[in-house]
Amino acid sequence: MSTTLDTPHTIARPAPAPLSEAFAHTWFMTQRQLRAFLRQPAYLVITLVQPIIWLFLFGALFHKVVDLPGFGGGTDSYIDYLVPGVIVMNAVSANMWAGMGMLEEIERGTLNGLLVTPVRRMALLNANIVSQALSTAIQSLAIIGLGALAGADYAGGVTGLLVLVLVSSVLGCVFGALSNALGMVAGERETIIGINTFLLLPATFLSTAFMPSGLMPHWMTVVARFNPINWALAASRSAMTASPDWGSVLSHSAALVGLAAFAVWLSLRMFGVYRKSV
């Protein structure tokens, strides 16, 4: 038997340079993810229902809290105060379900279908991060528009709003990456559902999303200091005032980026665990 395999019929090119290939693959995978987001406009609308409720109902219900002594918050309109809170909460609640998508791709076989191709392993994770950041930014912009409809006044101008969008996207990446990490090893939807429903409201209420720290019990302000949701709020609220404290904006943003790096590292590790379990 002397047949050889020097295939005259392979038409795939030889592997291109590693870096350009990594970028190309990240782009292909990101397109794939965003397609799912854009092809389902109903999904975007549904994700905006909650923010609308918070803005218009909660905002109307609590509009008088600004009159309470100790509110501070740098504004005399509760809607002004509420918009960053709702945007940040949306960034968390929209991305904390990313792991469900991951679980579905694992169950359906789509992930393994990609893993047997030459796709860069990193490109799969990078695409998740990029698409999560982009979809969060789109949602945040939509909520900024809704906030304006509800009468919010953005004193910090475009710069402040830009910081708000960026910071909420980074926060979205944190929760998206953590959720993906969970999805890769959880094996069951119930795990993700349980953890998410358990976490979302307490994590939001233990921040200044709806109430400034001046009106919180002392212990809450202590907990909030360690809450990454609060870091995002501190950075964006400061940037959105007429005279931002850029030191605070930068330090809180830096903390968030550091946490995002950790979350991505963790999801990379869990990706390794998943691949070992195949």
Partner: peptide, 24 residues
Amino acid sequence: AQGSGADPVATGRENLVLHGRLYG
């Protein structure tokens, strides 16, 4: 594989083009 490697949201052709790109 036993499970489908195709992306359900994308069209059949989009799936093919994506896979082809991954092979250069």
